[in-house]
C-alpha cells in the first residue's frame, strides 16, 4: 500500500468520438482509505481544445500541472500561437523522461482536437513519458483495471458528442463504484472543434 501511485487515489479516462473527444476524471483526494477532499479535479486545460488529466500521487499532480502551465505559457509567448495536442504530447513525454531516474508519480492522459486539421487526438503516458497512442480510449488511475472493462464494453466508433458524453460518463461512474480509492463525483469535458462542454457528475457520495 506504499505504492506512490495508490496513496491518494483517482481515475481518469479519455475517449474518441466522431469529430470530438471526451476526457473525464473523478473528484476524490484521499490518504490511503481516508478521504481528504471530494472536490479535487484532475483535468487541466492547456489550450482552447487541449486537456490533460493527471492521476497518481497528488503532490505530483500539483507539481506537474503547474510545470506544464509554465511551459505552455512560455511556448505561447515564443510561438505566438496555442500549442497543438500532438506537440503537447511530445512536450509531456520529454518533460517526464527528464526525470527518468526519479520520476513524477503520475499517469497523464491527453485529449484534444488539432486546431489546424480538426482531427481528434488522444494519448496516454506512463510516469517516465512513454506515449501510448490509441484510436479508441485511454485509461489511468487506481480504477484503470475497471475502466478497461467498462470502456471495452461501452465504447463504439464514431459516437456523436452527446452519445460520447453518455458513454464516457457511464464508463467512469461504473468503474469508480468498484474502486474504493476513487469516485465521489466526476468532471467530464466534451471537446468539439470550436466548443467545449464541461459537466459535473454527482455520482455516489460514499
Amino acid at each position: 500500500m506504499s505504492n506512490p501511485f495508490d496513496i491518494n487515489g483517482g481515475a481518469c479516462v479519455a475517449m474518441v468520438g466522431k469529430d470530438c473527444v471526451a476526457i473525464a476524471c473523478d473528484l476524490r483526494l484521499g490518504m490511503q482509505s481516508l478521504t481528504i477532499s471530494n472536490n479535487f479535479p484532475k483535468i487541466f486545460n492547456y489550450a482552447p481544445s487541449t486537456y490533460l488529466g493527471l492521476t497518481g500521487l497528488a503532490t505530483d499532480v500539483n507539481t506537474v500541472s503547474d510545470l506544464f502551465r509554465y511551459k505552455v505559457n512560455m511556448y505561447r509567448l515564443r510561438e505566438e500561437r496555442d500549442i497543438a495536442p500532438q506537440t503537447f504530447a511530445n512536450l509531456v513525454s520529454s518533460s517526464l523522461y527528464e526525470k527518468r531516474f526519479g520520476p513524477y508519480f503520475v499517469s497523464p492522459v491527453l485529449a484534444g482536437i488539432n486546431p489546424t486539421t480538426g482531427k481528434p487526438f488522444i494519448c496516454g503516458f506512463d510516469s517516465i513519458g512513454c506515449i501510448d497512442f490509441a484510436k479508441d480510449f485511454i485509461v489511468s488511475g487506481t480504477a484503470s483495471d475497471q475502466l478497461f472493462g467498462t470502456c471495452e464494453g461501452l465504447w463504439e466508433p464514431n459516437l456523436a458528442p452527446e452519445d460520447l458524453f453518455e458513454t464516457i460518463s457511464q464508463a467512469l461512474l461504473s468503474a469508480v463504484d468498484r474502486d474504493a480509492l476513487s469516485g465521489w463525483g466526476a468532471q467530464v469535458y466534451i471537446i468539439e472543434k470550436d466548443k467545449v462542454t464541461q459537466r459535473l457528475l454527482k455520482g455516489r457520495q460514499d
Binding site: 481516508l34 479535487f40 503532490t59 500539483n62
Partner: peptide, 20 residues
C-alpha cells in the same frame, strides 16, 4: 490543507493528525 508530501487541497474544513 497541505500534507508532508506537499499535496495541496482547498477545503471548507480540514484536520491533521488524530483529529482527522
Amino acid at each position: 490543507w497541505v500534507d508532508y508530501l506537499a499535496s495541496l487541497a482547498p477545503l471548507p474544513y480540514a484536520a491533521h493528525g488524530y483529529a482527522q
